[in-house]
Design a protein around this nucleic acid. Structure first.
Lengths: 126, 126
DNA sequence: TAGGTGTACTAACCGAGATAGTACACCTAT
DNA sequence: ATAGGTGTACTATCTCGGTTAGTACACCTA
């Protein structure tokens, strides 16, 4: 269900967060659906329970999920909405990236072509 | 001449590398021009000489600069060329970023608009 | 000769990330 | 009531990359 690279420069708990966020955005994890338990997921991924909980508590603090002690963790009602508005910040990253590529002499059209491809392929699965 | 953030998640030596690379790409550091000495730059930035040298040796290993013991470090002849071809790998990052933004429901047109702005502003300084 | 340059090396420190282990409170099904 | 699941909290320890500190050597130039 999840794909973790322990050797990545990106911390494991962040990888987990991002993958969970994507599952929410794609709708594969609808509102109020239950997440795998801390312990079971730690077993499945061979990762320390503390690391899983760190990811969960972060998502909880941001209102993406909510936890019921003794029961489990669930996707918040407006999780997708929160993520969508928050994702807009990535536009700054896109801008920075475009500046670097422009500096390297890569033509504007090539970037647009790249983006167009992404959106076109996405349409297939939608 | 350089702007380093010691608190950044990105290592200092990488920040230095990226800024030097941009100076080469913009032409502010033409071929055969001399880089600041390891010691002087370490003084100016209040950074350990070893950290500076780590950045320089990395650039040297990649053929971006060449060093003459006893004299100094200089920009390689084909430095800009190497960087340009290498920068193409960032297109993959752009693709990944576009996928995330598409997933968040941000319209394709908005990304293209963002990119267009970058390239338009760049034209002013060219 | 003096002072600049790159380079190499070892030792130590630091902080973030991850692990290990324990413990507590809660809920549910048996 | 018991057993086993859940989230949560806490401390201690380990690891590793990045950084610092210090020293040393070879080289070039004024």
């Amino acid at each position: 269900m999840f794909l973790i690279d322990p050797l990545s420069r990106q911390p494991v708990y962040e990888q987990l967060i991002e993958q969970l966020e994507k599952l929410v955005l794609t709708g594969l994890l609808p509102a109020d659906s239950q997440l795998p338990s801390v312990r079971s997921l730690s077993m499945e991924l061979s990762i320390n329970p503390n690391t899983i909980q760190k990811a969960y508590s972060d998502l909880d603090a941001r209102g993406i999920i909510y936890s019921v002690p003794g029961i489990g963790c669930f996707v918040a009602k407006n999780a997708a909405e929160i993520l969508q508005t928050h994702m807009r910040r990535k536009l700054d990253t896109l801008r920075q990236l475009a500046e670097d590529l422009a500096l390297a002499g890569i033509p504007e059209e090539e970037l647009k072509e790249c983006i167009h491809t992404v959106y076109q392929e996405r349409g297939v699965f939608k």
